[in-house]
Amino acid sequence: MNPVKTFRINLPTLFERVNERRREQGLAPVEPAVMAVRASIKFSIRQQKHMNLKGEEVEIAKEDADALCETLGELFNVDLSLAENNGTQAAAARAPADAAAGEATWVLPLFQFYAAINRERRAKGLHPVEPAVISVRTGIKFSIMRRRTLNFREDKLLLSEADLQVLDSILPQQFDVAIPGGLVALCLLPAAGARPSAASPVPAGSRRQGFLARFLALLGGKRNAATHHTHHYTLDTSNLLLSILTRRAYLGHKPLTPDKVKDRCGKALSAVLELAVDMDDEKIALTPEQIDAFADIIRKEFEIMFEDLDDLLGKKPPK
């Protein structure tokens, strides 16, 4: 039996974000107290239960969180068009309705997809499979099974839950692995705009967290222990540089000076992640998402593979 997931929502932050969306639409902001009262009433009618939205935080079940999001949308016109200049959050705002209809669109970052497959393969003592092979083999099987194609030339795939299930079934067959919790565990925020035609629910146990949980996380709400932690990892800069140089040498690449590696890392982090990172610092702090993205940057910049940089988190350099 799956435990009921609950979410702890920071209400002032949530209301503030609703007002930001209203301002973006040229609408007047709503006083938080008014918002709280009206939302409380509407929520009570909708859910047949009372919730006090005047406090700092509220801890609610996923179903109630979905209802709250819809309530706020209806009451304060925080609809999809509210955040056209912010696709991610706009999609998140729309997401609960999609989720409720079982037609969610999920974003699967391809780098994480490849990395997860190879992480599982390594765990089984199997050789890794290069992304070019994974993409074409998965793409063909998917085309056969779903009678439509996926675009592996992008950085990510947009998938319905039924698509995810098909992909989950392809992985053991083609690569002898299964991703713990299913591929949905690798998915990011729901995609903007796309609505897959087919849908069937992902088994409850395999769903990592709902749209609203992510949306609320974006809004600054704190998540409970059952959800994904957001914290920073610390990368030792000199360890990182040494690992890049060692790995390149091991693979027979032309040598680069540490300064050059440092310079290219700094520029890439700045350009891609918009982070002002001083590579001369002893350590740099990155979120898990940034760590993944940084691993991708390193792969492209230096033609070496660190699947998720876990190897560099205070451990020995990879061989």
């Binding site: 050789h127 290069e130 992304p131 070019a132 693979l251 033609e303 070496i304 593979m305």
Partner: peptide
């Protein structure tokens, strides 16, 4: 790669360099 330098071919090399999208 430059095979003339005899880089030593193995699975890792294929994975990381030869069949990477770079180049």
């Amino acid at each position: 790669i430059d095979i003339r330098e005899r880089p030593g071919l193995n699975q890792d090399f294929y994975f990381d360099v030869f069949n990477s999208q770079q180049g």
